[in-house]
Design a protein around this nucleic acid. Structure first.
Length: 471
RNA sequence: GGCGACGUACCCAAGUGGCUAAGGGAAGGCUCUGCAAAAGCCUGAUUCGCCGGUUCGAAUCCGGCCGUCGCCUCCA
């Protein structure tokens, strides 16, 4: 089986081949930095991370670009409200955004361009659009004339006949030729702060929404991208308008594969601050939930399905992650023990059948649920071999490599070993072992409880005491 | 109103015409254990929202109904 993706452009599953063999250029729509991102946003960002990791696992090189939209109505409003400059306002939210990505173990993209650093590039696009007759001026702003772009609507499949030419929308302060025309350059208006205003060949004002994505994606990835992603709400108007602007300016196909993630909902409802079901990563961490469980929960539902976030499923995810972590620990122990050095035949067969199934899951439009199914069948087999006592250290090491290979896509195992054994912890463990030896179980349990309170879990195993930190 | 998605066990979820309907979690039993923890084994949908239809055969295709949800200009 070969890699396939669901392309929003055709609404069908299609084989994927990048423009340049072996190398994928992808643009993953990033945040507008006006608040702390919520778990719904992060579902999309984690999916985009897994997409990139999966592409690399499948042997592609990736160049990922994620924009930071730091100029729009919401960021301006926020800056005005707080009485600070636009840059000061957005810098805060950029910072917490990267914090949340790091918490959820998202691998960094190659570039995180900011809209405000690319004003000249945006101006260039507007000029090109104007040369090609795609724009007009009205009320000091420059608009994209949809009537000049016949294939407008091809992504969102909007019905153009519902457009009313020459209509003026009651609550719209601009005079447009067509209600669906959109601004590529917004003329300065009374009250807009200096920090959010640029004086360019186009006049005094600021770029329209959508334009930053066209400018920055093409700057870093070329005029035709392999993949462009976002959540479903971006299909219209954002991505539709990006196509119009970009293709209008270059005359070339803008994006070959459009991928869109479904939304996350909470308890079956759209997340909303007013409903009290609105969560951020710090919210969940303060309730004692693990970032790795959050990440696992996101992966357990394929990206084109709505993900119903509940605390029950978050707890289930935590258990599943703990099981993976436990296997990794046990395999590591066995791998370091002494014994036969050759890998037994059965081990290789189990690994390759697991890897095939895992890969097939990923290749099937990033079906992470199917991939996880394959992983846990493998977990069962590895545990059974471990339990039998027959698994060689080399076999255990091979199993562990396979497990960690899969985790290079999933990213739910703990980061590399936490350095040296904490000598204090080891001293407590030794004390407890002494107490157990003299059958003073009350003292032994007291020590275990004491460590548990510090987030250290002990497990007595035939091979000795195993301990780990609660993540 | 227009467009679209979804409805599989207690919860999450794979599965898109044909082997015994993946996998995870929770639950119960057993093994191991001082007790825990971890791990293993076993148990668990004659059934895929409901009703019809097509077919030798459908969770999978078609029609209707019921239910849930989303988008329709700045929400990922």
């Amino acid at each position: 089986m070969a890699l396939k993706f669901h392309n929003t452009l055709t609404r069908s599953l299609v084989p994927f081949t990048p423009l340049t063999a072996g190398k994928v250029h992808l643009y993953t729509c990033g945040p507008t930095v006006y608040n702390r991102v919520h778990i719904g946003n992060l579902r999309t960002f984690v999916w985009e991370d897994v997409l990139c990791r999966a592409l690399r696992y499948l042997g592609f090189e990736t160049v990922q670009v994620m924009n930071l939209t730091d100029i729009d109505d919401k960021t301006i409003r926020g800056a005005i409200q707080e009485g600070i400059t636009l840059k000061e306002f957005t810098a805060r939210h950029v910072e917490t955004f990267f914090e949340d990505l790091a918490t959820l173990n998202v691998s960094p993209a190659a570039h995180y361009p900011r809209a405000t650093d690319h004003i000249p590039e945006m101006v260039e696009i507007v000029k090109k659009l104007t040369e090609r007759g795609h724009t007009y001026e009205s009320d000091g702003s420059i608009w994209f004339r949809i009537a000049s772009f016949p294939s407008y609507g091809k992504l969102a499949r909007v019905d153009l006949s519902s457009m009313q030419r020459g209509a003026r929308v009651a609550d719209d302060e601009y005079e447009k030729e067509d209600v669906r025309d959109f601004a590529v350059w917004k003329g300065w208006k009374e009250g807009e702060p200096e920090s959010a205003t640029w004086t360019t060949e186009l006049g005094k004002g600021r770029p329209g929404w959508h334009l930053e994505c066209s400018a920055m994606s093409m700057k870093y990835l070329g005029e035709t991208l392999d993949i462009h992603t976002g959540a479903v709400d971006n299909i219209f108007p954002h991505h539709e308008n990006e196509i119009a602007q970009s293709e209008g300016a270059t005359g070339k196909e803008f994006v070959r594969y459009w991928l869109h993630a479904e939304h996350l909902i909470v308890d079956g409802e759209k997340m909303a601050k007013s409903k009290g079901n609105f969560f951020t990563v710090p919210d969940l961490l303060s309730r004692g939930h693990s970032p790795r469980a959050i990440r696992y929960l996101f992966l357990s539902v394929p990206y084109r399905q709505k993900l119903n976030f509940t605390f029950e499923s978050l707890a289930a995810a935590a258990s599943a992650v703990a099981r993976l972590e436990s296997l990794d620990l046990r395999l590591g122990e066995r791998a370091r023990s002494t014994g036969a050095s050759a890998i037994e035949d059965g081990v290789e067969a189990k690994i390759s059948s697991f890897q095939n199934e895992f890969r097939e899951g990923l290749e099937d439009d990033l079906n992470t649920a199917a991939a996880l199914g394959a992983l846990f069948s493998f977990v069962r087999e590895a545990n059974a071999d471990l339990e039998s006592g027959q698994l060689s250290p080399a076999g255990a090491a091979a199993f562990q490599r396979a497990l960690r290979g899969a985790d290079s896509v999933l990213g739910v195992l703990p980061k590399a070993e936490a350095g040296l054994l904490d000598s204090e912890i080891q001293a407590k463990i030794d004390l407890r072992q002494a107490a157990r030896k003299r059958r003073d179980f009350a003292a032994a349990d007291a020590i275990r409880d004491e460590l548990a309170a510090l987030g250290i879990t002990l497990e007595d195993t035939p091979a000795g005491v195993r301990w780990r930190r609660k993540s």
